[in-house]
Simulated scan of single mutants.
Amino acid sequence: MPQSLARVLIHTVFSTKDRDAAFQDAAFRAEVHAYMGGCAKTLDCLPIQIGGTADHVHLLTTLSRTLAVAEFVKEVKRVSTNWIQKRGGLFQQFHWQAGYGCFSVSESKIAAVARYIETQEEHHRKISFQEEYRELLRRHGQAWDEEYVWD
């Protein structure tokens, strides 16, 4: 019987709508990250490292061989948004930004990317999310338009 195999690693980054600092509470942020890991698993995408700060998230995962990147991001955002909004209060209006960045990761770089995601708090004491995102885009040779990248 023929077998289809794939090992595709992706680093996905997106922010809260208008970069709202919705996850200031570290315990809640950890819950959100764990929930997103569960969303990834449900999609047959192995979560390797998930982290971020009060206004954005990084996901290092595998990508299922039967799923497009856009489907993966759309579903993780949709399901996590519903879960966050059910928390009530100010979270009833929660949304992720419309866009995202998704970058390929070499097998040899898993540990470095995981560490980068793990140390987001420290990293963002030095640079803003926008500076970080621009640098990711530059490193991956991706052109962008400032007018549209921050929706």
Score class of each variant (00 low, 15 high):
M1V: 08
M1D: 03
P2C: 00
Q3N: 05
A6L: 12
I10T: 12
H11V: 01
H11R: 05
F14T: 02
T16E: 02
D18M: 04
R19H: 05
R19S: 07
R19G: 02
R19I: 01
A22M: 10
F23G: 07
F23S: 10
F23L: 07
Q24D: 14
D25R: 10
D25M: 00
A26W: 08
A26G: 09
A26Y: 10
A27N: 10
F28S: 08
A30D: 15
Y35P: 01
G37M: 06
G37I: 11
G37N: 13
G37V: 12
G38L: 06
C39R: 05
C39N: 09
C39E: 14
L43S: 08
L43Q: 15
L43F: 11
D44K: 15
L46K: 15
L46W: 14
L46T: 15
P47D: 12
P47S: 13
P47W: 11
P47Y: 13
I48T: 08
Q49E: 15
Q49A: 13
A54T: 07
A54S: 13
D55L: 10
D55H: 11
H56G: 05
H56M: 07
H58D: 14
S64L: 09
T66C: 01
T66N: 14
L67W: 10
L67Q: 14
A70W: 09
E71I: 00
F72H: 07
F72W: 13
V73G: 03
R78T: 13
S80H: 07
T81A: 06
N82Y: 06
Q85M: 04
G89I: 06
L90I: 14
F91A: 06
F91G: 02
F94E: 04
F94Q: 04
W96F: 03
Q97W: 02
A98C: 00
A98E: 13
Y100E: 05
Y100G: 02
G101N: 05
C102E: 12
F103K: 04
S104W: 12
S108N: 13
S108C: 11
K109T: 11
K109R: 14
A112S: 15
A114H: 13
R115A: 15
R115Y: 15
R115C: 07
I117H: 13
E118S: 10
Q120A: 05
H123S: 06
H124V: 10
R125M: 07
I127C: 04
S128F: 02
Q130W: 02
E132L: 03
Y133T: 01
R134C: 02
R134S: 02
R134I: 10
L136T: 07
L137M: 09
L137I: 00
L137D: 03
R138H: 12
R138P: 00
R139M: 11
H140F: 12
G141Q: 12
D145H: 07
W150Q: 01
D151S: 01
